[in-house]
Amino acid sequence: MNKILVLIAICLMLSMENASAQIAVNSDSPDASAALDIQAVNNNRGLLIPQMTTAQKLAIANPAPGLLVYDTDYNCISQYKDTPSNPGVFGWTCQTLFNRHFLYMPTINIPTSDGTGSLLTGTRSIDLYNVYKTGFENPSVKSAGAPASIPYFNRDQLYYYVTYCDPCITVTGISDSGNLSYTVNALPNYDAFVNIVFLVR
């Protein structure tokens, strides 16, 4: 009997050498690229990581690079970015801090004249999202080795704001899809400036 148990144990150890070191939850086939693959049975659950205050987070002794916690003071997923080779350089950083999820609109021309020196009349419109997407898809210059295009958000992932408008223009509204409407009050002295900010929803 003991010989049979030893034989079974040897077979198990030999088979474990070829087993992948992967763990799957609610699945028999973890993704090949994942060490841990968690699937919700009815796709109605999420992953809840440890939640703590900033002080508790900072009190973690020797946090591993890439360690994640939810910071309840900043309401963000916080990642430890230091490595043993550069301690104290980056420290903890919020990955989902709301005020980091905005970007300024690329520079655009706001037409105010019909080309003959006369004011444009009526309500004009500019598709802000289309200008943004076109600029990010086809940047005019890039550094060596950089990707051909810049990653960009989808139209419905953004909120659109005007933080400043030259007095020669009146912004009458911005649609939820990023279409800016404006009227021209006067010709600008040089250029008409409008500061536009996109905020990730």
Rank of each mutant, 00 (worst) to 15 (best):
Y190Q: 12
K57N: 01
A64W: 03
M52A: 04
K3S: 11
S33H: 09
Y161H: 15
R45V: 10
T53A: 03
T112E: 02
A21M: 10
C168K: 12
G122I: 05
M13L: 15
I126H: 01
T116I: 03
P87F: 02
S33T: 10
I60V: 15
Y190H: 10
C94T: 02
V89C: 00
D156K: 04
L187G: 07
M105I: 01
S149N: 11
P87W: 03
C11T: 13
N43I: 05
C165G: 05
W92L: 01
T183R: 08
L14I: 11
L68E: 05
Q51V: 07
S15E: 10
L36P: 01
N62E: 08
R100A: 05
V200F: 08
A55M: 07
T93E: 12
V41L: 13
T183V: 15
D166W: 09
A192N: 04
S143E: 10
K133Y: 10
K81L: 15
N185H: 08
P87M: 02
N44F: 06
Q157G: 01
L97S: 05
D31P: 00
N99A: 04
F98E: 08
N185A: 07
Y129Q: 01
I77P: 00
L48V: 13
N109D: 08
Y70G: 01
L68M: 10
T53V: 04
L48H: 06
Q95S: 07
N99T: 08
T83R: 08
P139K: 06
